[in-house]
Amino acid sequence: MYGNLVVRPEDIENWGKKVEQEDPEKLAEFEARIQRGEKIEPWDWMPFEYRRQLIRMIEQHAHSEIIGALPEGTWITRAPNFRRKLALMAKVQDEVGHAQLLYSAAETLGKTREQMINDLLSGKSKYSNIFNYPAKTWADTAIIAWLVDAGAIINQTTNSRGSYGPYVRALERICWEESFHLKYGYDSVVYLATGTPQQRAMLQDALNRWWRPIMHFFGPPDTQSVHTEKLVRWKVKLATNDEMRQQFLDMYVPKIWELGLTIPDPNLRKNPETGKWEYSDPDWDEFWRVINGDGPCNKERLAVRRFAEEKGRWVREALRSPQAQYVTPLA
């Protein structure tokens, strides 16, 4: 367990293997454990593909939390009053805290925190696409805190039924904190929606700009997604992108309409026969363009992140003990 290991020694025989190359007996035992509803812990045997997919997923989630704090953090200095400022600071602190919890969960699988941050800064690892859009007005922070966090809660509650112990524990804590974000966001939205005509117009404008990124939030439609049968069996993926998107629309479209706001999609409606929401194509080309680096804020987000790492380096070095050795977090 000591030294700067990417992978612990016991994992190396496992490294790079395809599922078909895994020890069939161990694989069967692993799958039976998940089937019984038991969790997998970091010290258990697991197929390489499970480890790889979980690292990818939890790491992306961690990056999303830390980058996600940036668009909202922009508005701390310009919050409309002191209580809102305190609440926004608390929310942003929570998001950064979530990143810490998630980085630790991913580390238990064998990738160090430094490697994850390096991959974020080099653009190798992704984060949630929605945070590549700017928060232009105060109303944007209200829409983010309500609807983007609502999406995140659906996503995270779904994932918290997963099979990997450290991720599940982190998510339970995160969901508990997100419930404050959602209430705070809804309160901010209702405040603007019931305010002056200018406040209502500002809110409608924010909704207009955020609706498309929100529709992108759960990822490309199932028809464009790769086959994930194995990940479903391993309880890494618990619902499809479209299922989560439908759940979001079901829960939040009526609430948005209740405020008298207009959702900028004339084709949005619930089909009474299928019980499913129908909507215009939210331009998946834009989604891919932005995720691949060409969004309005991609450069700024990574520049700010790099600035923080670089300018904080001397502090971290000054504090570091020469005897320090890296150890994978326990659980």
Binding site: E107, T112, E114, L121, R313, A324, Q325, Y326, V327, L330
Partner: peptide, 13 residues
């Protein structure tokens, strides 16, 4: 500068 973080840059656990 585009320097990568070295091992232990973020300390130990």
């Amino acid at each position: 500068p585009d320097t990568a973080l070295a091992p232990l840059d973020h300390w130990t656990t």
